Simulated scan of single mutants.
Amino acid sequence: MTGYLTVGGALAFVEDHRVPGAPDAPAVLCLHTAGQSGAQWRHVAPELAAAGYRVVVPDLPGHGRSEPAPSGPVDDLGAYAAWLLALVDTMGLERFSVAGCSIGGKIALDLAVRASARLDAVVAMAADAWTGGRPSVKGLRRELADVAAPSRSDRTELGTYAVLGRAVDPARAALIATMHRREDPVVSNSDLIGWASHDLREQLGAITCPLHLVVGADDLWLDAERVRWTASRVAGARCTVLDGVGHYPMEEMPGFAAVLDGWLRELTADREAA
């Protein structure tokens, strides 16, 4: 049931989509990008539920309708991963899949390292094991002093346009950029500090669950070769580069629920065949 749960000492808002009469539907956790919320999955979640999944879409602490973490804005993506494991435990989910984008994709990779035995499949979009420290963590920390200036929302809108793929319909691009203006700049910058400092290179060998890394060919935030390198370090991992797509596949691509359904089914088949 969609609503609030207490996780880590604060209220978390969680969407829980499933078709009535399907109590055993496989669960998939859908994770949003830096500074955003589960609203990024608003078109995908109902269609994915109709395809036979229980779709769990949380707002991370301090995002959307979730309360801030008691310790303040989170700048460690590993802390988000630990929070999500507490969330699924609270919901009674022993096994589940994960699909995440941007910081959500990196968190999905982190979950794969921490809890492979519990994961049926992981789709990590717009993510790699290490960004090479880009953007500068020092610069991002310095920006925390002035990110709440009114012009920040304009910068967010323009920045969203910059990382969308060339295949996105202009009206759809305008809606995505407008929705992204809603972010809390302090939370967003803290997320980006987590993005730039998150390093799983030495831990990829711990991943034993089926993994699919996805990157848009027009994504200015990612180097596709780093994504391919990450996939090459995990046994059996898949890697897909999406032509004409930027940083937000689930928002940019019409009919994305069917695409994700296909990826999850392929990964589940890989697990069953192993």
Score class of each variant (00 low, 15 high):
R152Y: 14
R152V: 06
S153I: 05
D154W: 11
D154V: 12
R155A: 11
R155D: 05
T156N: 10
T156D: 09
T156R: 13
E157C: 07
E157W: 04
E157S: 06
L158E: 10
L158I: 08
L158N: 06
G159C: 02
G159I: 02
G159Y: 04
G159A: 04
T160K: 03
T160W: 00
A162D: 07
A162I: 02
A162T: 05
A162H: 11
V163F: 08
L164W: 08
L164T: 01
G165F: 05
G165C: 04
R166G: 13
R166Y: 11
V168N: 00
V168D: 00
V168Q: 03
V168W: 06
V168I: 07
P170A: 05
A171E: 08
A171Q: 07
R172I: 04
R172K: 05
R172S: 00
R172C: 03
A173Y: 05
A173I: 06
A173F: 05
A173N: 02
A174Y: 01
A174V: 02
A174C: 03
A174D: 07
A174Q: 05
A174P: 00
L175S: 10
A177S: 02
A177G: 00
A177K: 01
T178H: 10
M179S: 08
M179F: 12
H180Y: 05
H180F: 11
H180K: 14
R181A: 03
R181H: 04
R181L: 04
R182I: 11
R182D: 07
R182T: 11
E183L: 15
E183W: 15
E183I: 14
D184H: 14
P185S: 11
V186T: 10
V186M: 08
V187G: 04
V187I: 15
V187L: 12
V187P: 03
V187R: 14
S188D: 01
S188A: 13
S188E: 10
N189C: 10
S190L: 11
S190M: 13
S190C: 15
D191K: 13
L192N: 12
L192I: 11
L192M: 15
L192V: 09
I193H: 04
I193P: 11
W195N: 15
A196C: 11
A196Q: 06
A196D: 02
A196F: 10
A196T: 04
S197A: 13
S197K: 07
S197N: 09
S197L: 08
D199P: 00
D199L: 09
D199H: 09
D199Q: 05
D199M: 07
R201Y: 08
E202R: 15
E202L: 13
E202D: 14
Q203I: 01
L204M: 08
L204C: 02
G205C: 07
G205D: 02
A206L: 15
A206P: 09
